[in-house]
Design a protein around this nucleic acid. Structure first.
Lengths: 207, 207
DNA sequence: GGCGTTCTGTACTGTATAGTACATTACGGA
DNA sequence: TCCGTAATGTACTATACAGTACAGAACGCC
């Protein structure tokens, strides 16, 4: 069974396993993750793995959860300012800057993992649904505030606008990764921005 | 080694294997594809598999290639009319209508497969890069024609517009699949449409 | 400092499944 | 009708890898 560590040392070991597994997954994907490699990378034995995690799936799920938490926590500061086009631009810039490594890889672990797992794994799929929702919520709130003070058309559907923004982010990362062209993400976000701007009273703005 | 069939019967067998494998992959993903299942589904023995395909990877790659060809061929008729907002709308409608099954699953095998494979498989990744390029080419041409006859602003970058459209499609399918909400794809396309319309002389149009 | 609990090392087992060997059957041309 | 080649059936091997067993070391508490 999966056991929470009871000592400082145990906690450190568990964290090391988690970090090593996360890195391997980020580098090579979930499917090819081997426990042998995790052990070597974390410098632990087989028995540790099964001391802290019930089985391979449990380990993967734990990585997923902690990854989601980390990513969302890192974004938190920016998420409160999503109540103006300028604030959203800042957020987009941050996503472009930090969402990908230079080679167009490594971006948004949430989307990357979701793409690999949600196919046939219903457990983690729902975890991603929740993660997306948590990520999207601040945007919906921000857009709602914009609507409240007249910076967004009254007839705009904020949820739909937020949804299409999320789609643009994920699609941009996907194309950037497959094509190895980080710029694709920036372009995708420009599309979402156009849709947002089109829903403002000003209507059009410079791209 | 992989051998091309030399007789009608052989061709039929190879096709059956390919079809069965494609269906299994579409249903359960690439990673969990077992040769035993392919055999049972196609009604063939192990020796047939290895008569027509070098190994498992070769089979998967063949499925990928034939899937790409099939999807692109099916879209062909619509791809010639992408030189007006109306034509693009038709294309979008078709993608929404045929790109997903009712439950938000099963759409665009290209993107779905790319998501699973391109992570760590460079061979098939480049196949997807090419497939995306082939798919995108007609859109780029259409937008260029629009630009030539003044229906698109002269300073618009047609490649960038096409890229962001592709990103919207893929992101929409991803969200639709993860959230099991087919509607997400439609919204994502609305975002791309807004970006396209913003690059037209008219500037704004009804959504 | 003794004792129970937590933690760790190593060696093993079991199994799923990709790949092989080889004999046998159907086909197709001369 | 015969012969070579393509196609097929079955039974086997190899192995990678998840999961287990169990003994021993480190730790924390009284």
């Amino acid at each position: 069974m999966s056991t929470e560590p009871a000592t400082r040392r145990g906690r450190a070991t568990r964290d090391r396993i988690l970090a090593a597994a996360a890195e391997l997954i980020a580098a090579n994907g979930v499917g090819t993750l081997r426990l042998d490699d995790v052990e070597r990378a974390a410098g632990v034995g087989r028995s540790q793995l099964y001391h802290y995690f019930a089985n391979r799936d449990d380990l993967v799920n734990s990585v997923v959860q902690s990854t989601i938490d980390t990513v969302l926590a890192a974004q938190e500061p920016l998420l409160v300012g999503l109540d103006s086009i300028e604030g959203i631009d800042c957020w987009f810039d941050d996503i472009v800057a930090n969402g990908l490594r230079g080679d167009g890889l490594g971006g948004c672990p949430i989307g990357t993992l979701a793409r690999q797992l949600s196919e046939h794994d219903d457990v983690s799929r729902s975890a991603f649904v929740e993660a997306f929702a948590r990520w999207e919520a601040p945007l919906i709130e921000g857009l709602s505030r914009m609507q409240a003070n007249g910076r967004l058309n009254a007839d705009a559907d904020v949820v739909e606008l937020a949804d299409l923004t999320m789609a643009a982010i994920q699609g941009g990362i996907l194309l950037a990764q497959v094509r190895r062209k980080p710029d694709q993400l920036r372009l995708a976000l420009r599309g979402a921005r156009a849709a947002l701007v089109a829903a403002t009273p000003a209507g059009i703005s410079a791209t």
